[in-house]
Nucleic acid binder design. Structure first.
Length: 423
RNA sequence: GGAGAGAUGGCAGAGUGGUCGAAUGCGGUAGUCUUGAAAACUAUUGUACCCACAAGGUACCGGGGGUUCGAAUCCCUCUCUCUCCGCCA
């Protein structure tokens, strides 16, 4: 969420920058400013009324002490009237605040100047590519390979739970474990502190990172306890810093977490859902950073470079794209997507999304820092990225490395496994 | 799940209707002293909003609601924590 001060101070500029998202936000922006003016007017009056009430209440205490019953009773009358007035005003004020909140929550993050204009993923900008696309004699999609080698059982998942909950077996399960260990070890080497977070979150956490209230339908909801299954470790990990005021010297904050992720994927039925392409439960290692505002883009570049080393070490052909305005997430200012080429399907699969949210999440989280010698707190910047999501990485590994002799395991994973080929 | 106790500032911990944004101690910051440090002493030390700034004002003592002219203090409710019992990996 943008702050009202951000909006007021740079109104025209913000409207202009938001237009990169292919939508005109001038009306909402104007409404927000108008409502804020309204709110301030009400608060002025309310504060004055309360001040008077407080004054009278104090004087009543003194009058009683002095035994001036009559005067005290007169003062009470006045106080009652003031109270009614302040009640009215505070109701108005709450309504105004809620309305402002609602308007603000409909305004997305301001795209970074480097975000290209565009409508769909076709307008995304290719930043870099690497690796070599394998020249396979036979292209086999992973869902055939997994059943051929009996390493992932989709049918069994259907039986136990439902579609989108695969069962990993034997070498399939071991590869999952190896990938998780590999990703965590790499993150550790890169200075990220490992976190093992809760897999369910409460409402406040969901609000902090922006899943609630908008994307409520995308999370599994335990209504009995009002908890939600996490769609990504970003949520619990970033919320570690909800309601926190940091010191400048606490930066940089680097965290990583492995977790299972749960997504209802409502509304995406039938679209690229075969095999591992889109699941309700999957595993992912996430990196999260909290950064000084002046350093956050440096941080973003660092994260992109880091994720790039992962796909390189896994020897996967990849490309990095900068999302265009139309494809950019609501909360993000700049996002780089990583895609790996999956030869069996002849498709690029998105395996990581690395974003700078600037102060958009921090505002909701109330995550601030205090510069040395300054009294005012400022919002920190938050960033996160997948490093990496397992299922599509696995799909690409299986498809790209498949030969007549079986599926070869990339070198970096071999030390985590007691086999180097699946056959 | 049952019974009881509790939730106060960075921490510890007073405060049971008015003079409490809140004693005291510790910690933090600045200064005095010192070659430097420690100790000691002095001052300062929550967040947000209104206000151009300052002055001043308002709100916040786990969350929400209520009683009252006035609530950290009384009532209701929710959440959480602790102790005991039960169950349990």
């Amino acid at each position: 969420m943008l702050t009202i001060n951000q909006i007021k101070n740079n109104k025209e500029e913000i409207i202009k920058k938001l237009s990169v998202r292919n939508k005109d936000f001038s009306e909402l922006i104007n409404k927000a400013i108008e409502e804020d003016n309204n709110r301030r007017a009400i608060q002025n009056e309310l504060d004055a009324t309360l001040a008077k009430s407080n004054q009278i209440a104090k004087s009543i205490g003194l009058l009683f002490k002095e035994g001036k019953q009559e005067e005290a009773n007169n003062a009470k009358q006045e106080a009652v009237q003031l109270k009614e007035k302040s009640k009215e005003l505070s109701e108005k004020m709450n309504a105004s605040k809620n309305n402002l909140q609602k308007i603000l929550s409909e305004i997305p993050n301001i795209p970074h100047p480097s975000v290209p204009a565009g409508k769909t993923d076709e307008d995304n900008e290719l930043v870099r590519e690497g690796g070599t696309i394998p020249n396979l004699t036979k292209k086999v999609p992973h869902w055939e390979l997994t059943s051929k080698f009996d390493i992932i059982d989709f049918e069994l998942g259907n039986k136990i739970t439902g579609a989108g909950f695969p069962v990993y077996k034997g070498k399939g399960a071991k590869i999952q474990r190896a990938l998780i260990a590999f990703f965590l070890d790499e993150a550790d080497k890169a200075g990220y502190k490992e976190i093992m977070p809760p897999l369910m979150i409460n409402e406040a956490s969901g609000f902090g990172t922006g899943q609630l209230p908008d994307k409520e339908g995308q999370m599994y909801h335990m209504t009995e306890d009002n908890l939600f299954m996490i769609p990504t470790a970003e949520v619990p990990v970033t919320n570690i810093y909800r309601d926190v005021i940091l010191n400048e010297e606490d930066f940089p904050i680097k965290m990583t977490a492995y977790s299972s992720c749960f997504r209802r994927e409502a509304g995406s039925y039938g679209k690229d859902v075969r095999g591992l392409n889109r699941l309700h439960q999957f595993d992912k290692v996430e990196i999260v950073r909290i950064s000084h505002p002046e350093k956050s883009y440096e941080t973003l570049d660092e994260m992109v470079a880091y994720v790039e080393t992962l796909v390189q070490k896994l020897e996967l052909p990849y490309r990095i794209v900068r999302l265009c305005g139309g494809d950019l997430g609501f909360t993000s200012a700049l996002t780089y997507d990583f895609e790996v080429y999956s030869a069996g399907q002849d498709k690029w699969l998105e395996v990581s999304s690395v974003s700078n949210f600037e102060s958009f999440q921090a505002n909701r989280l109330k995550l601030r820092y205090k510069a040395k010698g300054e009294k005012q707190t400022k919002l920190a910047h938050t960033l996160n990225g997948s490093a990496l999501a397992l299922p599509r990485i696995l799909a690409a590994l299986l498809e790209n490395n498949y030969t007549e002799d079986g599926i070869k395991i990339p070198k970096v994973l071999q030390k985590y496994l007691n086999f180097d080929v699946i056959n």
